Simulated assay, not measured.
Amino acid sequence: MPQPLRPFVSSSLAALLVAPVIAFAQDKVSFATNWKAQAAHGGFYQALADGTYLRHGLEVKLIPGGPQVNNRPLLPAGRIDFLMTGNLLHSFDNVKNGVPTVVVAAMFQKDPQALIAHPGQGRERFETLKDAPVALVAKDGQFSWWQWLKVRHGFRDEALKPYNYNLGPFLANPKSIQQGYSVAEPIYVEKQAGFKPVVHLLADHGFSTYSTLIETRTETVRKRPELVQRFVDASAIGWVNYLYGDRRAANAMMLKDNPEMTIEEIEASVALMKAQGVVDSGESLQKGIGAMNTARIRDFHNQMVQAGLYKPGEVDLSKVATLQFVNRKVGLDLKASLGKP
């Protein structure tokens, strides 16, 4: 396991490293993400790099995902202990299909899924996006949030064109719009084309799912709740330190796992996460990072039923997530000590 990079630890973080903590036997834990290392995974890498997981009695093996890697089946198969998933649609599908997993924390209050447009084309208001002649959307988006856009906001299939994760078609057509991860594609557009795109976060227009969820097996929650609590708490603290403390050690670890990234891209992404309130906004401001509530999960499910993704009663919402490990204000004192209200 990578050791903490002490030269990069800030004085405030160093104080935390020597603070007394409850002693636990070291439990080996495996945690898989859904893509290659990037700033959107920063809090988990931070907890690994600065020793937060270790101080919570956890020896964590972090397993990155990627375009040729599908970590999702590893969780129900018992080959990993925790899994990072994109949004609640994955969790709804698991419950619908009888897969015995459950969400234990939501590290992002907003899903970073966005639509981007060229500036100066009359797309500064979200309402105008439905009139764009070309909408570049990947297949998975076409069968998920695009259906919601059609029902909720009047988008039309006639505009759809496949998005193959190549910015070329979007950059070549100033009238087009394109899907994007709000903390990633805008950075790449500016780097490649020299302009800042118009960015519309779906979360700001009713797409109410949580994102960057931590899932585990229902059996683990039942048999090892203290293990789950330690992993959730340590991850939340990792995110506080990553956003508001010294993140250089975590960034170095991510660059090692994903050499395609640059430190400039990572820092630009962190700035966007903060500006957009992706991680720390809404409920997390009072209840701590990772916060969830059942009413919001129900609201998102109802929207997806209206969009035709699920039939009424098809998903037992009581099995989707448990709130027993979140909403405990973990990390709020640390955040205050780092000078953030």
Rank of each mutant, 00 (worst) to 15 (best):
134 V>A: 11
155 F>Y: 06
146 W>S: 01
140 D>R: 13
152 R>V: 09
133 P>C: 07
156 R>H: 14
139 K>D: 13
151 V>W: 00
134 V>H: 13
146 W>M: 06
136 L>F: 05
117 A>C: 04
129 L>I: 08
146 W>E: 03
134 V>N: 09
152 R>G: 05
152 R>T: 10
132 A>D: 10
131 D>S: 10
121 Q>E: 12
153 H>L: 00
118 H>F: 11
130 K>E: 10
161 K>D: 02
151 V>A: 03
132 A>G: 11
162 P>I: 01
132 A>P: 04
160 L>W: 04
129 L>K: 01
146 W>I: 02
131 D>G: 04
123 R>W: 14
161 K>W: 02
136 L>Y: 09
117 A>V: 06
162 P>F: 00
155 F>I: 01
124 E>F: 07
140 D>F: 14
146 W>D: 01
118 H>R: 12
138 A>H: 09
116 I>H: 01
119 P>A: 11
121 Q>K: 06
123 R>H: 12
121 Q>M: 12
134 V>M: 08
135 A>L: 07
133 P>H: 07
150 K>N: 04
146 W>V: 00
125 R>N: 11
120 G>D: 08
136 L>A: 01
130 K>R: 15
129 L>M: 06
152 R>D: 13
147 Q>F: 06
161 K>A: 11
136 L>S: 02
153 H>G: 00
130 K>C: 09
130 K>P: 04
154 G>Q: 01
136 L>P: 00
160 L>Y: 08
139 K>P: 02
121 Q>Y: 02
148 W>E: 07
153 H>Y: 00
126 F>P: 05
159 A>N: 13
159 A>E: 15
119 P>Y: 06
145 W>G: 03
122 G>H: 05
159 A>L: 11
159 A>G: 13
129 L>P: 01
151 V>G: 01
155 F>G: 01
156 R>V: 02
162 P>G: 03
147 Q>R: 15
117 A>S: 12
132 A>C: 14
153 H>W: 00
161 K>R: 13
149 L>V: 03
132 A>L: 08
120 G>M: 10
123 R>N: 14
151 V>H: 02
158 E>D: 15
140 D>C: 10
132 A>K: 06
159 A>K: 07
150 K>Y: 04
126 F>I: 12
160 L>V: 12
123 R>Q: 15
157 D>N: 12
128 T>M: 15
153 H>I: 00
134 V>T: 15
161 K>M: 10
122 G>C: 12
156 R>P: 06
137 V>R: 01
140 D>V: 15
156 R>N: 09
143 F>T: 13
153 H>D: 00
133 P>D: 10
152 R>S: 14
157 D>K: 07
125 R>G: 09
144 S>D: 09
160 L>I: 08
143 F>K: 14
134 V>Y: 11
148 W>H: 05
144 S>K: 06
147 Q>L: 13
120 G>H: 12
142 Q>I: 08
159 A>I: 15
142 Q>A: 07
